[in-house]
Amino acid sequence: MRAAAYLYALAIYGFIFLPVAVLVLFSFQGTLFPIPPFNGPSLRWYAAVLSDARLTAGLVNSILVALLSSALATGLGFLAAWGFARFHLPGSALLRGIITLPLTVSYLIIGMGLLIFFNWIGFPKSLAAAGIGHVVINLPLCFAILYSQMGENQANIERAARDLGASEAKLLLLVTAPMMWPALFAAFFLSMTFSWDEFVISFLLTRFDTTLPVEIWNMLRAGLNPKTNAVGALVFGVSVVLAIVFELIAFRKRPQ
């Protein structure tokens, strides 16, 4: 019975991780094709990835878009969450629902909507457009994380700061934001994770300069080779690191 349970668990994790494991394994392939037998390990395909100007440009673009869009989404989400948590607004519940609504809409629909809108206002396809798209998809997430962390205890701490003469700007900068830094970092890193391997919106909204997932897609159209495995393994590695950082911050035991 126990053996069956272990076998079942093994099957499940195998089902989830085997494709990734094979991808990573054959990224170290020594010959031209990512098919058995494995004759590595070799780093030649990683070298090829890092000397490919288009891929490295995509890598830099992806990092740039992820950092800036996540910073913007976290900042806007923080201000919105603070506003909703601290002030009585007419129709507060409805407005909160509308802010989190994009979470339920597919990226394809959001991407298409933005494409049509940008076209209409004459905003060109670009990394900036993709970055705005990432803010649109990550803002609701940041808002939800931050809003859930704003408690009544913190409201009293803010009252104390106001009582001692803090302006609203100083209050946010010196008290509220530092007090909420674990939630802010968690929101930021989760946004980074989603922005980092987002494909559909980037594909629709960029043209010449584009992000790494779109570059990989361009590569895949030419067929499989261990280089695609290598770049896939790199993307996967970065996602894992971001997810671990997020979990460490979000589920860390805090004093008090």
Partner: peptide, 28 residues
Amino acid sequence: PARRPTATVFQDYALFPHMSVGANVGFG
């Protein structure tokens, strides 16, 4: 609250958790 000559000690103390005791006291 900031403009009137009062100061409040809150029931839950409302100390700034990320600041040292000295920074808390010196905040005003």
